[in-house]
Design a protein around this nucleic acid. Structure first.
Lengths: 187, 187
DNA sequence: GTAGTCATGTAAGAGGTTACATGATTAG
DNA sequence: CTAATCATGTAACCTCTTACATGACTAC
């Protein structure tokens, strides 16, 4: 792929799993080329212009394997939305409500996309995945697909949990507001 | 509080909600002081040494209110664990299993702490919270506590979802391994 | 010719991690 | 006197975001 292909790729359905702007992609490709993880081929386009088509090479595959075969330590906890919710007394009921509504909409939206991706993987509708499976035995192909589906089930689980949480918060806000307790705006 | 007090605070139960190393705390306090969000008082300790005790001031409270009253845009998706799970065919069964086991243990651990914190908030066992509630009406106090509990219910929901997901993955790995499909190590 | 897409960068700055570094005070 | 704790920094580096910047190609 070229850098531009990757930019488009990260704008597509993969954006719901991992995001990367072009300002990160181009320098990173150069770095990976310098480290000999990938190799570039300069291809003519039109009269004067060229593009750089990258391909993974041995060292890159080894690096991927090494990354996959490494246990990732748990990330430091830093959950801004939970933190903000814990501080809702400093906001107005209206802002708290709008915050949770947007949050819920965001995850509803993600959920739809993830469900679509899940279905596409299950039905082997993705060209990139199909071509990868072509050179594998049926057992291997099954495992590859099963792992992707497993990852997406995780994302869907998160989406469901987030939506339920936001709903609970919206109920709470209605309940508190009806009791008439003022929040920080009026302290 | 002094910077050191905050360092200790972030080492305590709050670490399960938000983490910050001392190398971030001290410069940040200086920045906030420069911006007049907080004010420092130099206090003697022992013969020669002093410490800087910080207190929030008006502009700081306003900033907190402004932050709370702003709708935070959803974060870009970047879920390394789901991404790694989607690439488990590049790992060995053993590493995949160990990865999920550690992940599950991590969330089991967090769950215990979050449950403890939830109970402490509910029973008003936290001194800092109690002192904050003292100057509020019962309605306001109820709202403040309710928001904290709501935030922790969100964390607990996440913990439960993550543990269930990891369990599902461990089952999947056992099932796939027993079918005998080799993973990337042997390709 | 011009608008949209293809294509590729750089730069400043925010936020965070890890490591380096120092010295006073207090409890035993 | 010595170890633990109190106390406070700096620096290099990484990742990511936002903004700035440019130019060729292609379909109309």
């Amino acid at each position: 792929m070229t850098g531009y292909d990757l930019v488009k790729y990260f704008d597509g359905s993969i954006a719901f799993l991992w995001q990367a702007p072009h300002s990160q992609i181009y320098p990173e490709l150069r770095r990976m080329e310098k480290d000999e993880l990938i190799r570039a081929e300069e291809v003519k386009r039109g009269e004067r212009a060229t593009k750089r088509v990258y391909r993974i090479c041995e060292k890159g595959t080894a690096e991927l394997r090494a990354w996959a075969d490494t246990i990732l330590p748990p990330p430091p906890e830093r959950d801004v939305y939970r933190l903000k919710a814990a501080c809702f007394e400093w906001a107005s009921y209206d802002t708290a409500r709008r915050q949770l509504t947007e949050y819920r909409n965001h995850y509803r939206n993600l959920k739809v996309h993830w469900q679509q991706d899940f279905a596409d993987i299950e039905a082997l509708r993705l060209p990139l995945l199909r071509s990868r499976l072509a050179s594998r035995t049926p057992d291997e192909a099954e495992a590859i697909v099963a792992f992707k589906l497993f990852a997406y089930r995780g994302l869907l689980g998160r989406a469901k949990a987030e939506i339920a949480w936001a709903d609970e918060g919206l109920d709470l806000i209605d309940r508190l507001e009806s009791t008439g307790a003022p929040l920080a705006r009026s302290w």
